[in-house]
């Protein structure tokens, strides 16, 4: 379902961009697990938490989030508290839309 590789500066970029959107606190843990599980050799994952502060940051969530970071996943949120407390990159809804435009696959979870 992905478009052909983009050629830039003579290099072929075959990385596929996947954006996982998480809007509900109820889905935040499963959404993180889904984001982790979607990693492959040729995939970039952006996990975007919308409109809410990550709640109940228990050990399991913390461990998985650290693993997500080790896998070079990008954590983005439009909620400033997630940037200030948990190291998410902050983005406005408009900036998130731009990222979705560039994504090969968008998964609202």
């Amino acid at each position: 379902m992905f478009p052909p590789p983009l050629i830039s500066d003579g290099r072929v970029n075959t990385m596929k961009k996947i954006a996982v959107l998480i809007k509900s606190i109820d889905q935040q843990y499963d959404g993180l697990c889904l984001s982790l599980g979607a990693f492959c050799d040729d995939v970039e994952i952006q996990m975007m938490v919308l409109n809410h502060e990550v709640a109940d940051m228990d050990e399991a969530y913390q461990d998985n989030m650290e693993f997500f970071d080790e896998m070079k996943g990008q954590r983005i949120s439009n909620h400033m508290a997630n940037a200030e407390k948990f190291g998410f990159g902050h983005a406005t809804i408009k900036e998130i839309a731009q990222r979705l435009r560039e994504a090969d696959l968008v998964i609202p979870f």
């Binding site: 809804i93 408009k94 839309a97 979705l100 435009r101």
Partner: peptide, 13 residues
Amino acid sequence: ETVEKLINYLSET
């Protein structure tokens, strides 16, 4: 509102 905004932004291009 969030979904409406995202769809509107995406639709611009």
